[in-house]
């Protein structure tokens, strides 16, 4: 099963076009990402979107935002935690990266290397990400829309993250972050791309499993009382 947790959400018609294109090239599930301002509007046509495809491709929403500081991160995360299945924070700032890795309510830290000269992660953040089950997202669109030395530097950042990933085994998510149908590729294209940068095939499929686990975990999040404790219905 192939999942893309981050495709830029737009209006209803554009979303249908993107979902159709994704379906054609083999994706089984996509998440449209919205910022907190557009999220409520987008929720209105979520059911309609899913019924349009009738289960051939499933669609969900991701809340994606770039907080100015740690307080804003906590505030917005708290506000939207029960309303969406996936919360993604755009990284880049070291303080945000750290606050994100330490926050158990955050699902994904997206692009920790953004606008930086290094990968934005170290062994401390990697350990925190493992403890709090925060996934690190690498987006293919950064590679696609850059060229020459910029592209090389982003690939170098990816490789640094792979090194930490192999040692600490934090959840890794690979997404396309497509903004138009020109950015949508087939899952196997992405697989071979990440393979060429040094990630193994098993790791790619593990990242798909991680994406699936994030969505499934969040469906049950309300019943998680403590870590490892889940409220269940009285089935007996």
């Amino acid at each position: 099963m192939f999942l893309d947790l981050n495709i830029k959400g737009q209006d209803f018609d554009k979303n249908i076009e993107m979902a159709n294109h994704s379906k054609k090239y083999g994706w089984n599930h996509i998440n449209f990402s919205y910022n907190p301002n557009d999220f409520k509007e987008a929720l209105k046509f979520k059911k309609e979107l899913n019924s349009y495809f009738d289960g051939t491709i499933t669609i969900d929403y991701t809340l994606e935002f770039k907080p100015k500081n740690q307080n804003e991160l906590v505030k917005i995360t708290k506000k939207f935690r029960d309303k969406c299945n996936c919360i993604t924070i755009t990284g880049g700032d070291l303080k945000i990266n750290r606050a994100c890795c330490e926050n158990i309510k955050v699902d994904v830290l997206s692009r920790p290397y953004l606008k930086r000269f290094d990968s934005g992660l170290n062994h401390v953040l990697a350990k925190e990400a493992v403890n709090n089950n925060v996934a690190i997202e690498l987006s293919f669109n950064d590679i696609l829309n850059s060229y020459l030395s910029y592209r090389s530097k982003i690939i170098a950042n990816f490789k640094d993250i792979y090194t930490l990933y192999r040692k600490f085994d934090f959840p890794l998510v690979l997404s396309s972050r497509s903004k138009s149908i020109f950015d949508i590729k087939s899952p196997y294209d992405l697989l071979y791309f990440f393979k060429s940068t040094g990630l193994s095939e098993d790791d790619f499929f593990k990242s798909q499993k991680t994406s699936q686990d994030i969505l499934e975990f969040n469906k049950n999040r309300k019943n998680m009382i403590l870590k490892g404790v889940r409220r269940i219905d009285n089935e007996a």
């Binding site: 090239y25 696609l144 829309n145 060229y147 950015d183 087939s186 294209d189 060429s196």
Partner: peptide
């Protein structure tokens, strides 16, 4: 084949127009 596939995946534009190549 895999190398060619990757190279084609990374093609983004041609003469300032967007282009997308997907291996089927």
């Amino acid at each position: 084949e895999d190398d060619l596939r990757v190279a084609l995946t990374c093609v983004n534009n041609y003469k300032h127009d967007r282009i997308s190549i997907i291996t089927i």
